[in-house]
Amino acid sequence: MVKISQSRSQILDLLSSIPDPEIPVVNIIEMGMVRDVILTEDGCDVILMPTYNGCPAMAQIEADILVLLKREQIAPAKVTIVLDPAWTTDWMTEEAKEKLRNYGIAPPLHSSCNSDQFARNTIRCPICNSVQTSLVSRFGSTPCKSLYRCDSCFEPFEYFKCH
């Protein structure tokens, strides 16, 4: 029998201090990656949903969670990766999207990933808010982003792809 003094919501609050390793302005709770925290007699189980297949940030996030829980003396603790339901960018909070925009990354358009029209969506420039933008490259520096250029302010920027 294990007794963990922190509550589920306290642990969720703690987890919100863990940034996304690739985009440190947002945390893993805002990104919608943490499905749940389950406290049982066996300890604490953090249920995590992978974002992109093969995204190397996932291993870092898992390690960060375990380090944090150890530091807070929440033990025994483990991380369980679940595939079902599949993570989607629709689970990102509005707050996270705003933070992305301020950071210079155009946030994902909601649910448009389920449409075949996805390539024709208008992506707003996160710097000057212009809709006159063009796709430079579908693939970018990480699996979640593509590269755009603003045709109004001429700044290049990244777009967080719908997923």
């Binding site: 992978p50 992109y52 297949n53 093969g54 995204c55 595939l83 430079v136 490259s137 579908r138 693939f139 970018g140 520096s141 699996p143 590269l147």
Partner: peptide, 20 residues
């Protein structure tokens, strides 16, 4: 360069898929 990124990004997607 863009195609270097594209082809290796696709490779990464498929490595992740294979792993799962």
């Amino acid at each position: 360069l863009e195609e270097d990124l594209a082809l290796t990004n696709m490779a990464l997607d498929m490595t992740g898929r294979a792993q799962m």
